[in-house]
Design a protein around this nucleic acid. Structure first.
Lengths: 245, 245
DNA sequence: GATCCACGTTGACACAGATCAAAGCCCCCA
DNA sequence: TGGGGGCTTTGATCTGTGTCAACGTGGATC
């Protein structure tokens, strides 16, 4: 029952939400045909972001949220002294920019880790449509809520897990999200550096690298640079539950 | 311009939002007189939670969000092995329960740390009213967004700060929130134990205790059990910016 | 006002992960 | 085809925080 990434049979120049192959993952979830047509009017602008470019920066005026059409992003917060906390990695179908609603300014940076394309969803208009389409309203609330729950998960990673647990949880999470997009659960390419993984997991890049090597020695995964193959998902999961008392 | 906690001049048995002394901090922010009257109809149930009791638990069906009228809460997530991650401490005027929207179940526990009272806001009705009252809709979005931004702040605490930085940030945050409620910025009682602070900050209780003692030695604060007096807020702030390169 | 008990403090020591350092690898580009 | 730079790996050592243990303290209860 998960969404498959299938090529559109008709070349859709105006690739609206109603035609989008991500509609089961993204904002259109649960909308009727009719409502989808309305959503098409809301999402009329698409934007290409090249690898390394910012979609927005902390301090930028907040005007829209963004649905990732293709590509891969990271969000991070920088401290004055240059230290970086990566707050998340986002892939196709996920929504970026909700951090800006509260203060009318973005509070973090969103950087493309590969050439990407996003759908621009002007926020004032989203609120207008939400008042008309209760399914859209409710789904948007769910998306925000899930972001809060995801953040709690990251707090658990950072607060109570040990280095190898964190990395195992990270790999399993990526695997699960790739699966939901119709990609292999066991084989994928990391889009981020060891340093970025470390920043996300509250570890130094050397620790991340060592944990990868350790997992490989133990036959849990195979790593070649950014290419990861999960050989023993159950073993990784066991790392998470088998924490010492 | 911050809200003062002033006693109501008229004893209001039916303490509606329109009369609430927290209306400048809570959900009613930015509503007109008229809209406030409507909100009064939405928020018709109040609930007392005694110290130590749960407002909700992870797994409970999600039906409502809660505005804290009086008191103090913690939210936490428990791992199978019994380890606890405190995800936040909430005080009067703050909203609890938004974690449950996404999955229709609560994903964390909310426990009263002192005798407390909350206003019950049935979520389906909140969405209905939001479709009518755009100021309410927008404000609710802001509240959720700020929760996300707050979570990012906790990630920074946990991901890149050292023990004393974390505790300094924690104290300054509490101080600022007490100030916004008309209490002293420099003197307050902690509602939570060292263990709970530690769980929130990703530290062990001994480390929290030692950091408190260290701050006291350095003249930054005075601690007697749960009573805290901030003697040098600037010094605490300096701890945050003066991180080593 | 004696007893109890949960919570807090402090010390000694251990260890996971950070830091420092040196190579190695891979991809990009001339 | 070769050089360079960014990223990764690995080793040696250091250190902040955890762990373990003992003791202190204050508020509740009878």
């Amino acid at each position: 029952m998960h969404a498959q990434v299938v090529p559109l049979s008709v070349p859709a120049l105006r690739e609206a939400c109603s035609q989008c192959n991500l509609r089961e993952l993204c904002l259109p979830v649960g909308l009727s045909e009719n409502e989808l047509d309305q959503l098409d009017q809301l999402v009329h602008l698409r934007k290409k972001i090249h690898r390394g470019q910012h979609l927005y920066r902390g301090g930028d005026a907040f005007e829209a949220i963004y649905a990732i059409k293709t590509g891969f992003f990271k969000t991070d917060v920088l401290l004055e002294d240059g230290r970086e906390q990566v707050t998340g990695f986002q892939m196709a179908g996920e929504i970026l920019g909700m951090d800006g609603i509260g203060s009318e300014k973005h509070t973090c940076n969103a950087v493309a880790l590969e050439d990407s394309e996003v759908c621009v969803i002007p926020f004032t208009e989203l609120e207008e449509y939400s008042r008309e389409i209760s399914a859209l309203q409710h789904h948007f609330h769910k998306v925000m809520s899930r972001e809060i729950v995801r953040d709690h998960g990251v707090m658990m990673l950072l607060g109570i897990m040990r280095a190898e647990e964190r990395l195992a949880a990270f790999l399993l999470n990526l695997s699960q999200r790739f699966t939901a997009r119709g990609y292999s659960p066991t084989e994928f390419n990391l889009r981020m550096t060891r340093n970025e993984i470390g920043s996300y997991l509250g570890l130094k890049l050397e620790t991340v690298s060592r944990a990868f090597s350790r997992f490989q020695e133990e036959g849990l995964i195979t790593v070649h640079q950014k290419h990861i193959q999960i050989r023993d998902a159950a073993g990784l999961k066991k790392l998470l539950s088998d924490r010492r008392v």
